[in-house]
Nucleic acid binder design. Sequence first.
DNA 1: TAGATTGTTAATCGATTAACAATC
DNA 2: TAGATTGTTAATCGATTAACAATC
Lengths: 225, 225
Amino acid sequence: MKAEKISEAVVRRLPVYLRHLTELHKREVMTVSSQELGQKLDLNPAQIRKDLAYFGDFGRKGIGYDVSYLIEKIRHILKLDRQINVALIGAGNLGHALSNYNMYLKESMKIVAVFDSYVPKIGTKINMLTVQPIEELKETVVEKNIRVGIITVPDTEAQRVADQLIEAGVEAILNFAPTVLKAPPEVRIHAADFTTDLLSLAYYLDSGKETEVHDNDKQPEKVDR
Amino acid sequence: MKAEKISEAVVRRLPVYLRHLTELHKREVMTVSSQELGQKLDLNPAQIRKDLAYFGDFGRKGIGYDVSYLIEKIRHILKLDRQINVALIGAGNLGHALSNYNMYLKESMKIVAVFDSYVPKIGTKINMLTVQPIEELKETVVEKNIRVGIITVPDTEAQRVADQLIEAGVEAILNFAPTVLKAPPEVRIHAADFTTDLLSLAYYLDSGKETEVHDNDKQPEKVDR
DNA sequence: TAGATTGTTAATCGATTAACAATC
DNA sequence: TAGATTGTTAATCGATTAACAATC
């Protein structure tokens, strides 16, 4: 156990550990080694041990990690043993998808309000929640102690929505719009836009067998002008 | 221009550059410096210059980068100047959301087939595409020269779907299910699961003002047993 | 005790940032 | 020419991996 600063990379692996541990728990596996965990999650065992050791001595030498105990610990580290209220802004397909997933996470992160600016959507229901007009954002955030906002509006509206969330006092934003949001440093912004993922994937495709579209330059990759 | 291996981090920034450059192009901005780009995208200008320099000498000293020219170059690097056919497996809300976004990206990555295993969904339309039974996956992948698969099925089915995609011969998979997929090294897997994002965000919230749920241990963070 | 596996230090590897000569 | 900005090298910073003593 040390007092170092925990890197973002470490924090982003914790939910992955948690997920697999929960799976093991369901299968009534009592104990797991960093070796086995690494195999399953495609990670280096040393890295897993190091990640966990930042937060405490959770394992037992010669044995491994007690599954239930480690679940409990990671849940605590990630603050998933408290309820955190979340607002969803944007009641489109993506918003729907997110609120469905959210049903899984019983306590912890919980979507407690949904907003949209498109008038016909207001008043409709999404998983027990009534879609509210975006004008009610601020008061609802305060009333319901909402601490996280999820943005699933079109990119043109994303910054405006972010500004309203920040002004209302949220501490973190998960942004699905394909824009880089501006925010003061105390508000944590996480980009979750998948067009970026999809486009970067294209880079790794084998050239050679593509269905061509236009200006197909078959020259040997000249870059200089 | 060098012959180094390009890191994943670099590749993942390219779509972000492209997006902003396209925006500038729309606003008829002719030229942009790494300085300005860095400001807008929250990146170090040196990093932007270095990223671009991996692929060629795209800028002009004292001037900056020609917006149109750089767009063209990045599109070429990312292979977005050819059409790449994509299959979507899972016609739920998330699948819908993705196929909507896909409409934007005129050419390049294009969803050309949608599959689902849920019988009542088969035959329904999503953005001009008819949902097909998953049994037709392999033949369709071959027929339509599909090279990328997007998985938006529940986590319990994800690995099976991945296996079918791989067997059918896709080169890359974008996986939205919260599972670590097993695949041979020549198939690129990209995890795009957002529960991980959401859960890791909780870590960064200020403790102190939470709505408590259960087993609220207010002891001073003891880790040892 | 022998075998297994942790926690941690040291070594390696890789990515970001600073600095600056080249040059538009 | 003076000012701006690139491309690139060197310096820094950070993250991953290997190795191993401690110990269950």
